[in-house]
Nucleic acid binder design. Structure first.
Lengths: 218, 218, 218, 218
DNA sequence: TATGAATGAGCGTTCATTCAT
DNA sequence: GATGAATGAACGCTCATTCAT
């Protein structure tokens, strides 16, 4: 069977969804390299072979999770935007920071999976599907930004679009450099308070600084 | 046999060094999961069995690389500090931004390897050695900061120490979220300029904003 | 469901024909074990499940190709015989050598597939269909021989029938032992001219010697 | 570990020998495609992984069997030649026919495995090792022929070397086209005596005709 | 009768790890 | 301490076969 690709990574296919969901759950429990296709199949309640009808390999599944997850995040923003009115830069910043909070609280894993991009995912995932997924996200961000600033003159759309990337970067970095005083959730003997990162607050704080610099630069 | 641990991760042992060096080279060429112990042994010019005298497993090697690499970065800073005098907050900021530039340009891989921490390294690396390495880094940062601000009143040492973490986080995030318009270094068809990250400039810019916020807050 | 067997190996059924044709094409391109039912189905333009309405498995398809192919060869001889008159042993030999030429030039694959008989086909093909196919060929040869020698006294029909087997054997052997100076059509560095077999000429020559020995033995 | 290749296909290595021996036994019992690496390993009394230290894959093992087996046959001939004296063409023919008898009786499987060359072995076996093995055989035949005809004037060495190939071809063909009245050693209902091949006698007879044609052509 | 998504047993192969030398 | 051949558990993945539509 052709690998399902009418909708990038079989996004709407219920079986592909079950598989992505199972893998998503597993990555919260088990190190990436210890997740086996067998385990994903069992968790998803499908046959092992079925996975390969939808995904090339394990990396492909996680690339799909990353892309569909972020896409979902964008679609939620779109829905919210349809119901509110952003009147000025202060409200825009406020709106974007609220999204950051949502992202860090509800999409942490999605953001973290991007850490595997360079060293794992990209080398093995389907490049076509990856491009499709990224392009879809790119277009969604574009729509979101257009809608968000439609009432605000004097805003550089390009900078706001770019801010979405920086938002992800900040979050991802904070997650990767947080908890350096633990290994596998086990605290070190020596207290190292300055090594600890409060991911939510510090991400929002840093992104806020960034937004100020592009929105309110003199 | 006891795994060599008098000096964390056999830091000074020439054989352990060759092994770390080989693995470091390989990660710039090959996806993490495709790096085998055999390949590392061959590249290092040692027998496969020898690796296991120094490291528990592959993750252990990369954890060691990450820690000894960053430790080396800190030691270089120490050396520099011994030769200069930092007189005020402006010079302090200047100094820290210069370090950021060094870090992003010469230690990219070291920073990137931290992306594997959560999903790969911590679960398999030797927790004792990891703790030792992190503690050593913690103490180095502590010394650096003390030395750096010794002439500047009115600086919160804790905040500067923490800034080192934020520096790493920013860099790591930028690296993970850069080049989203490529897969495996192959550019997408559709141009997506706002998705592109200039890692060096934007990291320094963002870290600069952060330093301003802690050094010059009203 | 009964596998279609009114006519051995669904010989006249257009779908079975398409399947055999697809497999025949594939064996000229791909090693036997690398030919999958999926590939055959795709090439044939039928669903994978459809194949199993006509053939038990891959071996069954190739057994069918071998038998229907050789049967077709025999039927062509029959047609030719209907239009000519063989008057003596010299003409008989001449006629048989012409058939050999046809066989080696147009039915090479059919002959070669017999190489798989022992180690692959017979163990998995449908024995009933195989017997049917072979019997049909046996009867065809019988008819051909009767027709061919009807004007020639003093010829042992049994020996001529047997010559058909020897003809196949010679051809098959020559094909299997030809080109030993190549692997996968790549010539060896060292020239080994005496290892090279000119399949057409040498097959005809050897078969000619054989026919002489049975037709003109003193 | 490098695949052992100092001596083509680890010919002298006792472990490689055990593996080839196990595979050789299995092919007399089980269809080629039903022979698994697991079964070979078990039969050989080695770990599955060990097989891959010596052979690339299953095809490689059988290519090795075919080549080392025939090489052994040649070496035996060499030994015999060292002890006898061939004085004329009649004795040469006699000698070659005796070798044919040995070949058909003791090396049937070796000859038969060549049937897999085209459709299985060559595509997957190690081409370097294959070339090495064939070259070694080529040189052995060359030596044998030189030694065999050293006392006989007026013999074309090239033709005698070529006769070794034809000998193999005849044998292989006879084996592949023998017993067409059986499937898996089960006799058909209808008796088809002319389809039956007496492999030993008919091979020797046909090769004898061939030798006459090259040795005693007028 | 044709289809093709789902299946899952079982394959070849890998590779971290061991341990006799 | 270094070696590297042997190991074998465990992996990803295949693909013939089924069967509901």
């Amino acid at each position: 069977m052709e690998i399902e690709n009418s909708n990038s990574y079989g996004r709407k296919n219920p079986r592909a969804l079950k598989i992505r969901k199972a893998a998503y759950e597993l990555i919260t429990e088990v190190p990436f390299e210890d997740i086996t296709m067998t385990a994903i199949a069992e968790r998803a309640g499908v046959a092992k072979g079925t996975i390969f009808n939808y995904f090339r390999n394990k990396e492909d599944i996680f690339m799909a999770i990353s892309l569909t997850g972020y896409q979902y995040f964008c679609e939620e923003i779109e829905k919210q935007l349809a119901e509110i009115e952003i009147k000025d830069k202060v409200e825009l910043k406020q709106f974007l920071l609220e999204q950051t909070q949502t992202l860090v609280q509800e999409y942490q894993i999605i953001i973290l999976i991007n850490s595997l991009r360079r060293f794992s995912l990209e080398a093995h995932a389907d490049p076509i599907q990856t491009e499709e997924g990224r392009t879809r996200i790119f277009l969604l961000i574009n729509n979101i930004v257009k809608e968000a600033v439609k009432n605000i003159p004097d805003v550089d759309l390009s900078e706001i679009r770019h801010a979405f990337i920086i938002q992800g970067a900040i979050l991802n970095g904070m997650l990767n450099f947080g908890n350096l005083d633990q290994v596998n959730n086990i605290q070190f003997n020596m207290a190292m308070p300055d090594m600890v990162v409060n991911v939510v607050d510090e991400s929002i704080n840093l992104f806020s600084l960034y937004l100020d610099s592009i929105l309110f630069k003199k």
